[in-house]
Design a protein around this nucleic acid. Sequence first.
DNA 1: TGTTATGTACACCGATCTGTGTGCTTACGG
DNA 2: CCGTAAGCACACAGATCGGTGTACATAACA
Lengths: 203, 203
Amino acid sequence: MTEVEKGPKGRRRGRGARERILSASQQLFREQGINRTGMDQLCAAAQVSKRTAYQHFTGKDELVAEYLRRFDPSVLSGVFDRTDLTPRERLLAAFDVPPTTPLCPYIGAAVELHDPQHPASQYARDYKKAVAARLADTAREAGAADPEQLGEQLALLIDGAAARTRVLNADAFPTAAAIAAVLIDTAIPATAGDDRRREEVSS
Amino acid sequence: MTEVEKGPKGRRRGRGARERILSASQQLFREQGINRTGMDQLCAAAQVSKRTAYQHFTGKDELVAEYLRRFDPSVLSGVFDRTDLTPRERLLAAFDVPPTTPLCPYIGAAVELHDPQHPASQYARDYKKAVAARLADTAREAGAADPEQLGEQLALLIDGAAARTRVLNADAFPTAAAIAAVLIDTAIPATAGDDRRREEVSS
DNA sequence: TGTTATGTACACCGATCTGTGTGCTTACGG
DNA sequence: CCGTAAGCACACAGATCGGTGTACATAACA
């Protein structure tokens, strides 16, 4: 994301069209959706000739898949890596999404593409599973009785908030966070590795 | 759904093309999505001439909106009207979706259309609010401390299960039901309208 | 029976979509 | 400075999209 100069194959050649294409994808696919964004418009926004785009990507499908792969997962990794928070706080922090966040592109892609076999759909599936797994890890760290279950539950809450926000056009994450708090308190024995014991996980 | 003979305006004229169109919409929009279903294909499936379709609907947008309005809400109303269940059981029954259910068309429409102003998007919003309201009513009946909050929470769980099922291609409703059980038990004072000892601890 | 709403058949429109073919320019690295 | 890979401009192909125009058929009801 930060590096715009690295060429496609590592060798620094040309003027980094690929990065511009992916950058434009981020913006347009999220603003307008995938199906409503044509390659012409995308190339224009990226200031890249259409020919060049199709030299970097065999087709729109591949571009969409790469767009999902490149989607900045800062919300995710940024939360799980915060060592200044207790595991329990980290679980809750996953619901602190700035209200400006457009909305989960993975759900959008899965719905828009509508084909579970599509590479992007498969990646979306993998990503969602990975999130649940990381939540489960953190839940285990927090001392949850059944970390896998709690992880899956919290993941469902996040997706619910995302979907509901999209449909209602109103932020649903606070509601999800409230549910999460209940679930976490229920699943974690009161005595377990909780707040004040700032479990330094020692990096 | 059952009646195919009723004409568009009540008077029985012609051969009920409108119903066939809407019936085909139900199938195709859900199987393939809205954007991936062309009017040509839809008319062919409905065995209706394209001209006729555009005499009944001013455009695809109107058809989509009507498709959502006509979507059989049996899952919803069928649950809330069951007087054989206690309010608490009714709240939980909302998560007993047969695994064959294709998946919430309202979320699909909102994502695919991608325009909050689209009539179908507006209807989806209204519908989701109505569901939350009915859940809140039932929650009140069940003696919940904060029925509105519980209704909104359960609605979010349903949407989460729907979205997650779509992305993961695996039934997520059991997980949502488990969360719902926790929320309900937390929100309803033990002594409240939790009708006589019908408490079935099925899980 | 005749009138009229309803539906049909089918060609056709312009727009837009993904994707190519071709020939030219430019920047970079040796 | 030169060769080559990267990128560009732009027309175009073929499909599909939503939507219409026109002329004809038929079913329902008076």
